[in-house]
Nucleic acid binder design. Sequence first.
DNA 1: TATTTGTATTACTCTACATAATACAAGTAA
DNA 2: TTACTTGTATTATGTAGAGTAATACAAATA
Lengths: 132, 132
Amino acid sequence: MIIKLNTAGSTPIYVQLRNQIVMGIGRGDLKIGQGLPTVRQMAEDIGINMMTVTKAYTILKNEGFIEIDRRHGAKIKPTALLTDNFSEKIESELALLITESSLKGIEKEHFFKMCAEMFDRLNISQVAGGNI
Amino acid sequence: MIIKLNTAGSTPIYVQLRNQIVMGIGRGDLKIGQGLPTVRQMAEDIGINMMTVTKAYTILKNEGFIEIDRRHGAKIKPTALLTDNFSEKIESELALLITESSLKGIEKEHFFKMCAEMFDRLNISQVAGGNI
DNA sequence: TATTTGTATTACTCTACATAATACAAGTAA
DNA sequence: TTACTTGTATTATGTAGAGTAATACAAATA
């Protein structure tokens, strides 16, 4: 999968990497059960420090999106458990986004249309022959 | 309006203040045409530095949510202009939020229900006798 | 046994955040 | 005019996070 980082922006690299992996799973570029590159390999591939990759992987592990096993490496997990924390995070971010959109004149119908398209574009899939 | 800040968290104070003001407009606590407290007053009210308030106000001004006039102070603007930048920001954040939600097992229908409730809760209103 | 893995530690530089103390021009109100 | 308030700007300081770099180590693999 191709990782695009914006080192000029203010968003931390480990956050960008974490988000790109999440989006990669959503698009189907990364499949459930598929292994991620090792922290050293990923660091070399995208030209950043190993510890920065570790930080992103650790967050993804804590969020339940991947599991890390020394024997099998990092793997994409099936549907992650929805915790109260994560639920609150999603709701508060969504509320802010909807308020901003509305203040900017985006109609409810248009917003829903955008959401529908994004949902339809999702392609969460499993790796061929994967035993989940 | 009541401003709640979480100084323990990692979100910068000026970002929290900016978000709270946006949400305040959306809820109707702050009405279009209404004046915001001066930077010095706001700083004193919520117990932070004047420059931190200035930072939040400047962002809101650049985003088109308020206008600052030395003669009239800071005022909430009517519907802000939707720029390409802001449109892209909303779309990318929404895409990430939808992907995360879906990976966490939140169904499309449930997501739409949340959105609908949030839209219905909005109460963007004008100040009484305000000449916009 | 040699290698790879995730993880941990320490040290260092750089930047952002927040506060503090002033200062000043523009506008307001006495 | 004078005194005050306003938004804005500057400089300095302390703290914390981000990112890199160089190692180190136990667990697992080949």
